[in-house]
């Protein structure tokens, strides 16, 4: 069975997405991977030592956030894996989906500010479409409550 990958930013705001991913994995008997992508290049050019520290801290922060998701999945009876990557978000997700031959990607449409709701949902849809076209993997979007 191809694994289900849940790309998440972690935390309470992503709980619904993570629980849905765990439920889908349980239903299909698939393995589940929580994937966190840290945008390591946001700060611009840094000294090598600071860059190493920055990337490491971002990865640790991401690791802490997705570890919470792993615990939640365990509570639902699903033993999930946690993967933290560093790089541009969409590209990293696409590469990872290909690498593990994923069967499904689960992403969340976080709760946006009311005035940007339409465009926000639109941007999540466009993000999902781009990944679908590039990898052929089914993408499930979990909306906010």
């Amino acid at each position: 069975m191809q694994p289900i990958v849940c790309a998440t930013r972690g935390g309470e705001a992503s709980r619904r997405t993570q629980e849905r991913a765990a439920a889908l994995a349980k239903e299909r008997g698939a393995s589940l991977v929580f994937l966190y992508v840290a945008d390591c290049g946001f700060a611009g050019p840094l000294s090598p030592t600071l860059e190493t520290a920055m990337n490491d801290e971002l990865m640790r922060l991401g690791g802490s956030l997705v570890s919470i998701a792993k615990v939640r999945a365990q509570e639902q009876g699903v033993d999930a894996q946690v993967v933290v990557l560093c790089g541009e978000v969409r590209k990293s997700i696409q590469e990872y989906l290909r690498q593990v031959d994923a069967g499904m990607l689960v992403i969340g449409a976080s709760r946006p500010a009311p005035e940007v709701e339409t465009s926000h949902r639109g941007s999540v849809d466009a993000f999902a479409d781009a990944i679908r076209q590039a990898t052929g993997v089914e993408v499930v979007i979990v909306g906010p409550d």
């Binding site: 930013r9 705001a13 709760r111």
Partner: peptide, 18 residues
Amino acid sequence: QLFHDHAELEREMLLQAR
């Protein structure tokens, strides 16, 4: 609930804890 509604608060707290 606050963390759910304002994800930045949770990240801030994690950074502060670290």
